[in-house]
Design a binder for these strands. Structure first.
Length: 721
RNA sequence: GGGCGCAUAGCUCAGUUGGCUAGAGCGCUGGCUUUACAUGCCAGAUGUCGGGGGUUCGAGUCCCUCUGUGCCCA
């Protein structure tokens, strides 16, 4: 059923609206804290306006241009494809050895080709200029088998002497090297493949029409069979075809090899044809910090390896229209050199329905009238403007001036060559700066076998089910434990660990809050007096410092790791150690020191964990605060005078006691008749400081300290009841 | 073929300018009904730090080389 572009866009908008709701629900569930009033869709009105405005500016400054040129073309999608969307795939092929008779009758020259079906498109033979085997032949002519056209033998450095027979045929066009040769050697055009992927119905000039009729209208692979059959029947083909594997260019979403057809397309200059611009864009990359740093190499390699400008027009329906019309001459042919541009205040426009200034609708597609550009801009041509779209560039509200250049672009490393590079290119052209100061590249989520997840493999896991099963915090915990830029294997085991962590946080909070609230009017430094408590807070200070440094270096995994290690130590050792004192075993002042320290640590830990496990921390925080944990300030070190290492021998002693009970298969509650700690004199003060807590935690009747070079404990358990 | 990574316990990984006996979690084994938590607690076993060479008083860490593996590009 035919449908107009506006109607099609309308249907797309409806679908987008539905999908947006699904995604918003997902992101809200994930706990992403963004301003939901600030959303946009890649194709909504503002995005179209910004995209068209930026493109028109590029056109006016000469950074965008249209050109009739050989273009990589997907015959199924019926559209041109940009360099960034191509990939090489190994495909079986076969060398066919074919002799070309010299035009002067002085013998023949053998060539090897994987595409004999393109003999009818042959425009030259080429060998390396230093190749002595062919030097005598340069400038002479040969006759193409079957089709009879005469072509000249040329020299070019890209010809590889060790490939095939060392001399290749140039066709318009078999591959991208053909395009280079064609351009640099100023060869004629003898194209035979059409946009539908079939061989054109009529033979090109100089090509024998009868021979060509046998392959006209066929797909290349069908034509190849026909040509090989002919070559064999006529005894031309030398030997059997020799199979080989070689890389063939595909559209990354396509199923059939790309062909090269000539068409008019829009390009944006990206340095692919200009070394100065290329150097400028590489320099933009050095203006930002890369996380991790080695990702910058990928950017540099990509920019330095570009071999053409950025093809931005696409022959598709859904997208931002190229905002251009063309005047038609008396014969109804477009005058491409003088495109008609809309004024910016009319944007966004659709040239298929809107009429350029000075024309009327009935002049559309009429001689001396106008025609709209039928193409759309590639999705990356709009995505490359996300800073401008999100920041309301030239939308009159002043937001852009406040947010641009941005602090950070977070994205996957697989789209450095597309999203990241194209964004830098547009920002360079439009604003003359790098669009942000930090690029944070995340790795991929791999399946448990460390394979990349993809729809085609069917190994994709969607998050919503995992949120239901393990809780959002658990999924976030797992994902935050993958270091920046490093691929992370999907692991439900890690999610279980995250679930345990969230649960532990809730429980320890509940426990600490069962104790009466200490008098908060007394400064922390005056209330926390016990060296054991001060030591714990000193350790916490180190953790806060390290976690903060981790975040500042974009290493959230490190921040999580340090916080988590401290937290489990805190629960299993510190809390167990001071529990008795908190229960008032040694009087209110001693208890108060522990209670203040416990709450201080809890408050910091909840804030340190808040970015990773936002829901459990918010819940736990709400039990004893009226604010949101996500709105309060980041924890700062307490800067008290504690010695972070003082508590270590105390915990070590407790571990010895626990081990003794475990080895005796006794409960940890079992009574200890006597504990003798042998320790170097330097550790005595620490053990003495922990004496009371140790007695409580270990149910120890008598604790004696003696001097000795090696730390050891002698434990006598009380006889069981 | 070029570029960039990775290789540490059965598994997933940490190990920041080289520095005591290489760590964690999971898993495994054994024990503990302990008044925040059995979604818990205590303890235990497991390593040629991929191979080789070099620098150094000292190398998982730095250099060279080889092997394996992954990504990007041609």
């Amino acid at each position: 059923m035919p449908i107009s572009r506006p109607n099609f866009l309308e249907l797309c908008d409806e679908l987008v609206e539905q999908d947006e709701k699904v995604f918003e629900a997902l992101y809200r569930r994930l706990g992403v804290s963004v301003d939901w009033k600030q959303h946009y869709a890649t194709i909504d009105e503002r995005s179209r306006r910004v995209s068209q405005r930026a493109f028109l500016r590029n056109v006016q400054r000469g950074e965008a241009y249209s050109q009739e040129a050989p273009t990589l073309w997907d015959i199924d999608f019926r559209t041109a494809v940009a360099q960034a969307e191509m990939e090489d795939r190994e495909r079986p092929a076969a060398y066919h050895k074919i002799p070309f008779q010299k035009a002067d009758g002085s013998g023949s020259i053998d060539i090897d080709t994987t595409r004999p079906e393109l003999l009818a498109a042959c425009v030259s033979l080429v060998a390396h200029p230093d190749d002595e085997r062919f030097q005598p032949h340069f400038g002479t002519k040969v006759i193409v088998p079957l089709y009879g056209q005469e072509v000249e033998i040329r020299a070019h450095e890209l010809a590889q002497p060790d490939k095939g027979t060392g001399i290749a045929m140039i066709c318009t066009f078999g591959d991208t090297t053909d395009v280079t040769w064609w351009r640099e050697l100023n060869l004629e055009m003898r194209a035979i493949i059409g946009r539908d992927g079939r061989l054109l119905p009529d033979a090109q000039h100089d090509v024998d029409p009868e021979a060509y009729a046998l392959i006209a209208g066929k797909y290349p692979n069908q034509a190849q069979r026909a040509v090989v059959e002919q070559l064999t029947e006529q005894g031309i083909l030398i030997g059997e075809p020799r199979p080989l594997q070689h890389p063939v260019k595909f559209y990354e979403r396509g199923d059939r090899p790309l062909e090269i057809v000539t068409s008019r397309q829009w390009y944006i200059r990206n340095g692919g044809r200009n070394a100065d611009l290329r150097a400028d864009l590489v320099a933009r990359g050095t203006e930002m910090h890369w996380h991790p740093g080695h990702m910058q190499h990928r950017y540099d390699n990509w920019v330095e390896g570009l071999n053409g400008d950025w093809l931005v027009s696409r022959q598709r329906f859904f997208g931002v229209p190229v905002p251009i019309w063309y005047r038609l001459d008396a014969a109804g042919e477009p005058i491409y050199d003088e495109p008609l541009l809309p004024s910016e205040d009319l944007l966004p426009i659709d040239p298929s329905t809107d009429v350029p200034n000075g024309f009327t609708a009935d002049q559309r597609d009429q001689p001396n009238g106008f025609a709209g550009d039928p193409d759309i801009l590639d999705t990356w041509a709009t995505s490359s403007l996300t800073p401008q779209i999100a920041g309301h560039w030239e939308e009159g509200d002043g937001l852009f001036e406040r947010v641009f250049p941005y602090d950070m672009r977070p994205q996957g490393h697989d789209i450095i060559r597309t999203w990241l590079f194209s964004t830098i290119t547009r920002s360079h052209h439009e604003h003359g700066v790098a669009p942000w100061s930090h690029a944070a590249l995340s790795g991929w989520i791999l399946d448990p076998d460390r394979k990349k997840m993809s729809k085609s493999k069917g190994n994709v896991v969607t998050p919503m089910d995992l949120f239901d099963q393990y809780g959002t915090d658990a999924v976030r915990y797992w994902s935050a434990s993958g270091r920046p830029g490093v691929d992370t294997a999907y692991s439900e085991d890690q999610m279980k660990v995250g679930r345990k962590l969230a649960n532990k946080l809730l429980n320890v909070t509940k426990f600490v809050l069962t104790f009466p609230e200490a008098d908060a009017s007394i400064p922390l430094a005056d209330a926390v007096t016990d060296p054991v408590d001060l030591s714990m807070l000193a350790k916490l200070d180190e953790v806060i410092t390290e976690a903060t440094a981790g975040f500042e270096a974009f290493d959230y995994a490190r921040a999580l790791d340090r916080t988590e290690s401290f937290f489990w130590w805190f629960c299993d050792n510190y809390v167990e150690l001071v529990k008795g004192r908190a229960y008032n075993s040694r009087g209110p002042e001693a208890a108060n020191s522990a209670l203040r320290a416990l709450r201080e640590a809890l408050g910091s830990v909840q804030r340190l964990f808040a970015p990773m496990i936002p829901f459990a921390t918010e819940e736990a925080w709400s039990w004893w605060n009226t604010t949101s944990v996500h709105a309060v300030s980041w924890p700062a070190p307490s800067a008290l005078t504690g010695d972070a290492t003082l508590i270590d021998p105390v915990i070590d002693t407790l571990a010895h006691v626990r081990r003794a009970k475990t080895e005796a298969k006794q409960s940890q509650k079992a009574a200890v008749e006597s504990l003798v700690v042998t320790a170097p004199a330097a550790l005595h003060a620490a053990v003495i400081a922990g004496d009371g807590d140790l007695r409580d935690a270990g149910s120890i009747a008598t604790l004696t300290i003696v001097e000795g070079a090696e730390f050891s404990c002698t434990i006598t358990l009380a006889p069981p009841d």
